[in-house]
């Protein structure tokens, strides 16, 4: 099941923040008065120093946290007005590469990569070859049977990326996706993101990697102390 707005959501921003603030518990605001939108098929980098709020902003988009103020819209729907039972269907349209990978340690590389497709209820026969091809593409073709504990940091990162993109999400969020890989693999992963974007996926990558930002030549959203100071300008 997909959630669409009545007028069709192709023309609407896939993500829209309007005066959004966020805090953890009763602590200070981590994000303050954030407003921006991501148009369908756009590709942005999210930059900023450590603690600027990059991961927090991504959490608001993949619905791991709620805004304390303001309005968050995903695919034209106000998240705060969306029924809890509909949120899983919004999440399925968003692929996430977590900074800490969040792989299931008891499952093989292949099982981890195929996880979103299992959640969608698809039969293994319909996606086995696609998953294998994707894993081969990210350089894990020889490690499909391996458990995550036996993978290097870079391999875990590539597996996390494979899992995030395996069901061709409408939006791909990546939190420091090239933090543990060498420059050659970093470039290869960037090509994967660009290819997904070319196929219509909206991409938002939070990164410290200035080389990656410069090489991709895409607009950036820059955070400083929880405030958005650059709204999509090119580097």
């Amino acid at each position: 099941m997909r959630i669409d707005t009545e007028q069709g959501d192709d023309a609407l921003p896939v993500v829209r923040f309007e005066g959004v603030s966020m805090r953890y518990g009763r602590g200070p605001e981590t994000l303050r008065d954030i407003s921006f939108s991501l148009e369908p098929g756009s590709f942005h980098f999210l930059t900023g120093a450590s603690g600027a709020g990059k991961s927090s902003l991504l959490k608001l988009i993949y619905l791991a946290h709620r805004a304390s103020r303001g309005r968050v819209e995903l695919f034209g729907r106000d998240v705060s007005l969306t029924h809890a039972s509909d949120l899983p269907f919004l999440r399925r349209r968003i692929g996430v590469v977590f900074q800490e990978f969040r792989l299931l340690e008891h499952l093989s590389v292949f099982d981890n990569a195929a996880l979103p497709l299992r959640i969608l209820g698809r039969k293994p026969a319909t996606y086995r070859e696609d998953v294998a091809e994707l894993l081969t593409w990210v350089g894990l073709g020889e490690r499909m049977h391996a458990l995550p504990a036996t993978l290097s940091g870079g391999e875990k990162q590539r597996l996390a990326i494979a899992r995030a993109v395996v069901d061709r999400p409408d939006v791909l969020l990546a939190d420091e996706p090239t933090g543990n890989v060498d420059p050659a693999m970093s470039l290869r992963l960037l090509r994967l993101f660009v290819e997904l974007n070319r196929l219509g996926t909206t991409v938002l990558i939070a990164t410290h990697d200035e080389d990656l930002v410069a090489r991709a030549a895409r607009p950036t959203l820059h955070l400083e102390h929880g405030r958005l100071v650059d709204l999509g300008g090119r580097p």
């Binding site: 008891h106 020889e142 049977h145």
Partner: peptide, 16 residues
């Protein structure tokens, strides 16, 4: 591709 892993014979593992 891994010599130990046959894609056509893969069965989903337990999620828990």
């Amino acid at each position: 591709m891994s010599e130990f892993f046959q894609v056509s014979r893969w069965k989903p593992g337990p999620l828990l």
